[in-house]
Nucleic acid binder design. Structure first.
Length: 835
RNA sequence: GGGCGAGUGGCGGAACGGCAGACGCGCCGGCCUUAGGAGCCGGUGUCCGCAGGACGUGCGAGUUCGAAUCUCGCCUCGCCCACCA
């Protein structure tokens, strides 16, 4: 036995992935095997995975993220589709600049060295990336078109400049988008420093114009959590705007937004955000000192202090009054920092009886609380606001609306306000316009110049790209390093030709990533951002994969881009990707997110050199559901390596004399049929699993098939057609997940290059089913026996056999069963009469 | 505070409402070895055991012939959002 094994092993050669993996990768690349041809007439399939930031080295998480879509892309390719699976680098961004500050390396030097290293590391994965389509967003050939797109947004009125209170990271010395401020304590997403508010002139993209369309996910196959996150982020609220006239000459009423117009009769005071423009207009002289102090304090506060929900409510009375438009009562106007300047109208009608925040404020400042909505026949609750909004509340103390169900009153009161010219229905959103300017160097310069005569002027398209000058000072000063570069700064006004100053802010890197999937379609086009015909042919992306952490940033921005570009007539579709899948996150062994600062980053290199790329790929896919991720633990990689080693020897097994009939396994014919059954059911199952991103169970089924092949070999089937079919099928099914060994063994078995050009195997349903089945027999739902019967045994016969079982009879004790439940092909359940 | 997930052997994890624990790791035993940290074979949820049983999917109820799976209520953990009127 051992000597046989050794002899076979000697002929087959030792299983040594290092001896063939690199060789095959080089050959595939030299042959352009995985290059997607624009002119290929077959069905196109655009598979995309999020391109990485070139941080320095690939870690195990990059492998995990890339191998999943690679498997699916390869499956489609073997099914005869023209598959594009490109890769590139999101290479602008802050870390490069930090490297410049910390170590004196130019951002470009640092970035491109990292790209070179990571590109080489990427190649060791054996993914079918089409490197001929690579995009690098910091290349002038790329950001030229990022700038061009900015100009299109500008011309379309979707890019604008405004003074705004913005989130500012004091450590990185940069403005952040709202989406880049994280957590309850409002920290910078990059460095974790608490952010502060600053008023600055900034560039915005008008994403709010598309809020409603972005809420529509019809026809999109997204994970539910992503849809929920985007929906919550956009935060659409329906309600009413209501005007509260003020007691001051020549001042327009204060307009508020509320989702509860039914409670307007309970509005006993008003609260303005301290930033509200009316504060300075309405404050009475005797209140001026207190109000100014409060406003100044609010401005100094960081977001941390301001946003904390647990915080005591504070505010001051500004001395002025407004009129409740329904009760006609005179109500005091306060300012308080719990009213946010950016949401709704920056002013609220305070209804302490029906809003917890207003209630807390009223209690703190002894303001009147009036309940106007109550459960039918109920009493006002003791010591708290009544916010419940079920079906059964009615209005009380609300004039002509008293007695009306609250649900109905929302519409009725809103209509009445409209009739009175005091407001009407309104919709409010949490989402704000996207702040895209950054006071940083390593990004695409915003293509605008400022002329003393003509103001902000777009750089003419033929002058693009506005190139980053290489020689700047990188010390962090709070202004862009470009501001101290005289040559860059000096520009001509496109309108008058006079001296002008160039915009020194660069664009958020999320602008770069909002269109890179379009550039992949015609990556070397020098005349346009993309070739419309090629984009029409390839887009939209059929399958997009990446981390869920981009739910409200990249994924939302890119959807906005596509919709905006469609409305400019530049694209003819509505959504960038039709199917989205998120991989889980691979955590460090300490169960923390992998990061250099924690020192828990797992590099794949050592594993790859010890076991080969196929083993690492397969192990990563085997550890659990792909969308789940989890802490890294290399225990168990040996099992996957052993499996590939078994495939290695099974695929090269020498024909042996067929064994005689075996009492347990049957005749050689029966054994062959069993093997074919295993082969064909595995085809069906693995195909399903790959398509559904269930790679872990796919691997388990491949292992089961190889176990069956091993038993067949031991039974002497190695020379038979059934054996050859089983092994060749196993290799084909293995090709997407372990492309190197599949190719090597395919060749060794005398088939032509390349296995990756073979057709995906088809399962024969006739062969996949067994002639005899084993039926579990339950008594009262508990397993008591098993029946082995032919597949076509009639139900009456099965019932007879089941009742005849001594294990069943023991529980029936001679009584007739109350009933017998049969699920055809699944089980039999005998229900006893009971007591 | 709101929203969404998830709790199954020693471990990672399987399981259209129908045989709980597939597949693998680990562990135990055996074979082969000068050796085994290589390879191969067998066993492995817990408890009682001769056969054969009992108990088992975070906890408690319910629906069902039958529940890891569906419903309700708790507990724990994770993620996202959070003074959004």
């Amino acid at each position: 036995m051992t000597t046989d094994t050794e002899a076979r092993a000697a002929r087959a050669g030792r299983f040594d992935p290092a001896s063939y993996e690199r060789r095959w990768r080089e050959r595939w690349e030299a042959d352009r095997l995985f290059h997607a041809d624009d002119d290929d007439p077959r069905q196109k399939r655009y598979v995309l995975t999020m391109y990485p930031y070139p941080s320095g080295d690939l870690h195990i998480g990059h492998w995990y993220a890339a191998v999943g879509p690679d498997i699916v892309a390869r499956l489609h390719r073997m099914r005869g589709e023209n598959v594009m699976f490109p890769m590139g680098f999101d290479s602008f961004g802050l870390p490069a600049e930090n490297a410049a500050i910390d170590r004196g390396i130019h951002p470009a030097t640092w970035t491109y060295a990292n790209i070179d290293r990571m590109r080489a590391q990427f190649r060791t994965m054996g993914c079918m990336f089409d490197w001929e389509r690579e995009v690098v967003t910091s290349d002038p050939e790329y950001y030229r078109w990022t700038q061009w797109l900015f100009l299109q947004f500008y011309k379309a009125g979707l890019a604008y400049r405004a003074m705004a209170p913005v989130d500012w990271c004091p450590k990185d010395q940069v403005v952040l988008a709202r989406e880049q401020v994280e957590g309850v304590d409002r920290r910078c997403w990059r460095c974790g420093t608490p952010v502060v508010k600053r008023d600055l002139e900034q560039w915005f993209f008008r994403i709010t114009r598309y809020a409603d369309e972005l809420l529509n996910f019809e026809g999109l196959d997204y994970p539910e959590p992503i849809k929920a996150m985007q929906t919550n982020w956009i935060g659409r609220s329906e309600g009413a705007e209501i005007d509260f006239p003020v007691e001051a000459e020549g001042v327009d009423p204060i307009r508020v937004f509320t989702t509860r117009p039914d409670t307007v009769f309970g509005a006993t005071f008003m609260v303005l955000a301290p930033e509200h423009p009316y504060v300075s207009v309405l404050t009475t002289p005797e209140r001026q000192a207190d109000v100014s102090a409060y406003v100044a304090a609010a401005r100094r506060e960081t977001e941390i202090e301001r946003m904390s929900a647990e915080r005591e409510k504070t505010g001051v009375f500004i001395g002025a009054h407004a009129i409740n438009p329904m009760t006609r009562e005179r109500i005091p106007i306060w300012i308080a920092d719990y009213v946010l300047p950016g949401y709704g109208t920056g002013a609220i009608m305070a209804v302490p009886a029906h809003d917890e925040r207003d209630y807390a404020f009223a209690r703190a400042y002894d303001l009147p609380i009036r309940y106007v909505v109550l459960p039918r026949g109920g009493e006002p609750p003791e010591g708290q606001a009544f916010v419940a909004h079920t079906q059964d509340e009615v209005l009380v103390d609300s004039g002509e609306f008293s007695g009306m169900p609250a649900a109905e009153a929302i519409g009725a009161i809103t209509r009445r306000l409209g009739e009175l010219g005091l407001g009407g229905p309104a919709v409010s959103y949490k989402i704000r316009d996207w702040l895209v300017s950054r006071q940083r160097y390593w990004g695409a310069p915003i293509p605008i110049v400022y002329c003393p005569q003509h103001g902000a002027q777009p750089v003419p398209e033929e002058q693009l790209p506005v190139v980053l000058p290489p020689d700047v000072d990188f010390a962090p000063t709070g202004v862009s390093p470009l501001q101290s570069h005289a040559e860059f700064l000096a520009a001509r006004c496109p309108e008058c030709g006079g001296e002008a100053r160039r915009e020194t802010d660069t664009m958020d890197t999320f602008v770069d990533s909002s269109w890179y999937f379009l550039r992949y379609c015609s990556p070397r086009d020098e005349a346009a951002a993309w070739d419309p015909e090629k984009v029409a042919a390839w887009m939209p992306v059929d399958l997009y994969t990446g981390g869920a952490e981009h739910a409200v940033m990249h994924l939302l921005y890119a959807r906005f881009f596509v919709k905006a570009l469609r409305d400019m007539g530049l694209l003819a579709f509505d959504e960038p990707w039709l199917v989205l899948r998120n991989q889980g996150q691979i955590l460090g062994m300490d169960h923390q997110r992998m990061s250099k600062s924690r020192g828990n980053v797992v590099a794949p290199d050592e594993l790859v050199s010890r076991y080969g790329a196929d083993t690492v790929r397969m192990f990563l896919m085997f550890i659990g559901p792909w969308d789940q991720g989890g802490p890294w633990n290399p225990t168990g990689i040996e099992g996957v390596h052993r499996f590939l080693g078994r495939v290695w020897s099974l695929a090269q097994a020498e024909p042996s004399t067929p064994a005689p009939s075996d009492e347990l396994l049957g005749t050689p014919d029966e054994m062959a049929r069993a093997l074919r059954r295993a082969t064909h059911s595995t085809i069906a199952e693995v195909t399903e699993d790959y398509s559904g991103f269930r790679f872990n169970t796919a691997v388990a089924k491949l292992m089961e098939l190889s176990n069956a092949i091993g038993r067949a070999r031991d039974a002497g089937l190695a020379g038979t057609d059934a054996y050859a079919e089983a092994v060749d099928t196993l290799l084909l099914l293995l090709a997407p997940i372990a492309p190197h060994i599949a190719e090597e063994l395919w060749e060794r078995r005398g088939h032509g290059y390349s296995i990756h050009d073979q057709a995906w195997p088809e399962a024969d349903p006739e062969l996949a089913v067994a002639d005899t089945i084993e039926l579990p027999v339950q008594v009262d739902g508990r397993l008591r026996d098993r029946l082995v019967v032919r597949r076509d045994t009639p139900a009456e016969e099965i019932e007879r056999l089941a009742l005849a079982s001594e294990h069943v009879q023991r529980y029936l004790a001679g009584r007739p069963p109350r009933r017998v439940v049969q699920i055809p092909g699944r089980l039999v359940n005998v229900v006893t009469p009971g007591d």
